[in-house]
Design a protein around this nucleic acid. Structure first.
Lengths: 231, 231
DNA sequence: ACCTGAACACCGTTCAAGT
DNA sequence: ACCTGAACACCGTTCAAGT
């Protein structure tokens, strides 16, 4: 009924699955997925590693929960975009870009989501609503199915980039391409040269947002063309 | 000059970067990427963990080397498909499907390739040749650049599947969808029901090869349509 | 019901040494 | 030039116990 006589009897918030998962997201947001360990998570929560195992079966289940939590954010954001607000393509586009916005705030999340072998209830809900949108727009079940595969992770707002363009391609790297290996990779050299001539390269090599939308529209337009065809 | 008098003086093959990398691939092929550890790798090579570090800077460098080795296989296979053998689309298609065939033999490889932040010389070579194909077909440099982003990992023959369909969707899971959650995920239920009615579901839920080609063609056709346009 | 301490079987890697 | 042994700083997790 009364605080102990212990020196610093901080109001000790008890653990809970919710609290554990939220702390895990926080840890990953700050230091990347590599910094999310059971031991560090416990430390952040002011408890002991083994205490986590009461709320979460093991690390794999922790990651399941974390993925589900992020997908929950996505569902909340995309749920607001109603089917009534336009043709299927603009609605799908808006939803996918909304999902992307959330994932941009959790750069480690795509990797975690991808690594889950079992679909969480959140991802089932997300895909169910996307399928509903397509069927309502007149897609055959088969075409809707192919559409999901064709979109792949893009349906949830992310792509796996094959090249790291996070830093602006400094002069050293540029020099490297233009002089050192121009004859070994002539076409890449041409491309790099061309891109670096374009406006603000200070932002980084490529405009990821533009490229994401370009690829997304390519697929959505292709699907629109197949919709209604006899199949 | 002569074998030692030691009991079992097996012809001791000396380590080399080549041998280390090949053994690493073998280990991953057999037990997945999780089973590739420095310690197990050393054991397989009949030497000690620390011996590996003479041939490879650290585990990250090992993975770089492994990715490069697989990409080398891909270059060898795709190099045979000449530009002269058809229009750009069929050539690109053939090359990409050839790359895919190799990756199907190393299911762990996409993840490793994706995780490399620095492009290996092999991937530079692969993309250089792909860009060359596009430019020669009349793509503008910008469109070729967008094409690479739109294809993403598909350019090297893989996609990241969002749902694990490796097992054939057993009766239990089917039952689950058809009865338990039909009203919670109505559209997924419809789709699953439809797919499970189709021919040989014994092969697994989805036909990955078909879906890969469907998505690939969607993108290639879209690019073909943009090619030649004023942009 | 909720949390913990000690211990185990693993990791990758440093460092100083052996041939 | 090539390899090694001992040791360190980390992991996730089992198990038996505490409140």
């Amino acid at each position: 009924m009364e605080a102990q006589t212990e020196p610093q009897a901080e109001a000790r918030i008890p653990l809970s699955k919710e609290r554990v998962l939220r702390a895990a997201v926080g840890l990953a947001d700050e230091g990347g997925i590599g910094s999310l360990t059971m031991r560090r998570l416990a430390e952040r929560l002011g408890s002991e590693p083994m205490s986590l195992y009461y709320h979460v079966a093991n690390k794999d289940a922790l990651l399941d929960g974390v993925a589900d939590l992020i997908l929950g954010e996505i569902i909340e954001a995309t749920g607001k975009i109603e089917i009534s607000s336009g043709d299927w393509k603009t609605v799908a586009r808006q939803r996918i870009l909304a999902a992307r916005e959330i994932l941009l705030r959790h750069p480690w999340a795509p990797e975690v989501i991808e690594s889950r072998t079992n679909m969480s209830t959140s991802s089932l809900r997300y895909f169910d609503s996307l399928i509903g949108l397509l069927l309502e727009a007149g897609f055959s079940i088969d075409l809707a199915h192919h559409a999901l595969h064709a979109l792949g992770s893009r349906a949830m707002g992310f792509t796996q980039e094959m090249y790291d363009d996070s830093q602006p391609l400094d002069d050293e790297a540029l020099e490297f391409f233009l002089e050192q290996v121009a004859d070994e990779y002539p076409h890449i050299t041409t491309m790099v040269k061309s891109i670096s001539h374009d406006a603000d390269t200070t932002l980084g090599w490529c405009d990821d947002q533009f490229e994401f939308e370009f690829g997304l529209d390519l697929i959505l337009d292709g699907l629109e063309r197949l919709r209604g065809k006899p199949n």
